[in-house]
């Protein structure tokens, strides 16, 4: 993925850029809002990672300009402001995701990759997802593995659907909580893990090849690869 990183904190930006490059992405870095807006206008990126508070032009304004110019590139806001109102402002400006500083890098990586995926498979309405021999139909809300129907609770289905939509990507616990339950907080206990392990019991237990994998220190992924 080609990622434009607009961040004025040199240390944080260098660290972030290095890690994103290590994960196989191409990263351009802009040091302030104006440079960032210009670079966004000039280059063809798969995702923007924008700090909300920037010199010269703040993150919200940059994205407003891009959206006015018809630029639909998905954007993730980085911010020290993490309350409900801030998030709402970020999403209103056309942001696609919102991550509060300080964050763990795997969380950021997972979210940026999820954004890129969203772009790669645009609005063509897919109602069926497949990973290996596991398939789900969003319309009939059914899941099958190797042709065998799997009984899922509604929430389990939403969980599986989210994982399948982001197949081969890492999905973090907070991403799951945000997208499946629509809550934004860090649970202090293992609530999400328990849900995931129950889902895993339903889709993987009776089969040789596990699909739902735990990525240590990051989250989960559903993938055919080992």
């Amino acid at each position: 993925m080609r990622i434009l990183l607009i961040e004025d904190d040199a240390d944080a930006a260098a660290h972030l850029a290095k890690n994103l490059r290590d994960a196989g992405h191409v990263v351009d870095h802009a040091v302030d809002g104006e440079v960032g807006a210009n670079m966004a206008g000039a280059g063809d990126y798969d995702a923007y990672v924008i700090d909300r508070m920037l010199p010269k032009l703040d993150g919200i304004s940059i994205l407003n300009r891009r959206r006015e110019a018809g630029d639909e590139t998905p954007a993730l806001f980085l911010s020290a402001l993490g309350e409900v109102d801030d998030r709402v402002k970020g999403f209103k400006a056309g942001g696609d995701d919102y991550l509060v500083k300080p964050y763990a890098f795997p969380e950021l990586l997972a979210r940026v990759e999820a954004l890129g995926k969203r772009r790669a498979a645009p609005a063509n309405v897919t109602t069926r997802y497949e990973v290996g021999d596991l398939e789900i139909d969003v319309l009939t809300r059914t899941a099958r593995r190797a042709g065998r129907k799997i009984e899922l609770q509604p929430r389990e289905f939403r969980l599986l659907e989210y994982l399948m939509r982001h197949a081969d990507q890492v999905v973090t616990r907070t991403m799951l909580l945000e997208n499946v339950w629509e809550y934004h907080f860090d649970p202090q206990t293992n609530v999400i893990d328990v849900h995931v392990s129950r889902l895993r019991a339903k889709i993987d237990k009776d089969f040789d090849k596990p699909l739902l994998k735990t990525i240590r220190g990051a989250g989960y992924t559903i993938t055919e690869a080992d």
Partner: peptide, 13 residues
Amino acid sequence: ETAEVDGGWPADK
């Protein structure tokens, strides 16, 4: 406080 969290309030601001 916010500035601190953010790692530095932009100079021109």
